[in-house]
Computed example of a mutant assay.
Amino acid sequence: MVNQNSARGLFLAAVALFFMLNALRYPLGDLAHAGPGLFPLLLSGPLLAIALLMILQARLAAPVPLSFNLKNIALIMLGLVAFVMGAQLANAALGIVLMVFIAGFAAATYSWTRNLKIALGLIVVAYGFEHFLGLNLRLF
């Protein structure tokens, strides 16, 4: 039996190591003049530490059998596709709303008020990225 908690920690560790090793291929620079590899390296370190703690915790807790909910996986994938289509056809705000409301069906209970709050929060973050970082997101 594969332990779900162990698998979750191992997958997170694999993702962290992937980004960490690829970040080392780019110049790191220093904190005053960061290179393109510094940000992924700084994020992958704590992510790897969290993954190792998850693996340790999985060894101490009772094992949980690994299972997949294909309906939820399909809903999350459909939400991502809806985000891309909405952002391409109209703007990123529509894509965010479509993604959140479709992916919300994967939750144990569907709440349109929770989805609205999440969508508004993500739109505020995207607005900050667009105006403070100068990214061209075509938000509105």
Rank of each mutant, 00 (worst) to 15 (best):
A92T: 15
I55K: 06
L38Y: 06
A49Q: 04
A34W: 13
L10Q: 08
V84M: 13
L60E: 08
A106T: 05
N115I: 00
A34N: 02
F105M: 07
A49F: 14
Q88H: 13
V81L: 14
V97G: 02
A49L: 15
E130A: 15
G128P: 05
L28R: 05
A107F: 09
P65N: 01
P63N: 04
L31N: 09
V125P: 08
N115P: 02
V64K: 11
Q4G: 12
H33G: 11
R138S: 06
L137N: 05
L24Q: 12
Q88R: 12
Y110N: 06
A87T: 11
A126Y: 04
L70K: 07
G79E: 08
A13C: 08
V125D: 08
A16Q: 02
F105K: 04
A61P: 02
Y110A: 07
P27Q: 03
L43I: 15
V100I: 03
G128E: 00
F129R: 02
L24D: 10
I118T: 11
L41W: 03
S111T: 02
L98H: 04
L139W: 03
A126I: 01
N3F: 05
M85K: 13
L56W: 14
G37A: 05
I123D: 10
A14C: 05
L70A: 15
L133D: 10
L139T: 06
R114Y: 13
R138T: 06
Q4K: 13
A34F: 10
L78M: 10
A126W: 00
I55W: 11
I102E: 00
D30E: 08
F11M: 09
F11C: 11
G121C: 05
I102G: 01
T113S: 12
L94D: 06
R59F: 10
L10M: 15
A7I: 13
A58M: 01
L78G: 09
K71Y: 14
S111C: 08
L17C: 11
K117W: 13
L24V: 10
P40I: 07
L12K: 04
G104T: 05
W112Y: 07
G29H: 04
G79L: 00
L52T: 09
H131K: 14
A16L: 03
F11R: 07
S44M: 02
M85C: 14
G35F: 03
L43C: 07
V125K: 08
R8W: 07
L17Y: 00
M20G: 14
S67K: 15
L24F: 12
I76Y: 03
L75F: 14
V97W: 00
L78H: 06
I73E: 02
L122C: 11
L66W: 12
N72H: 11
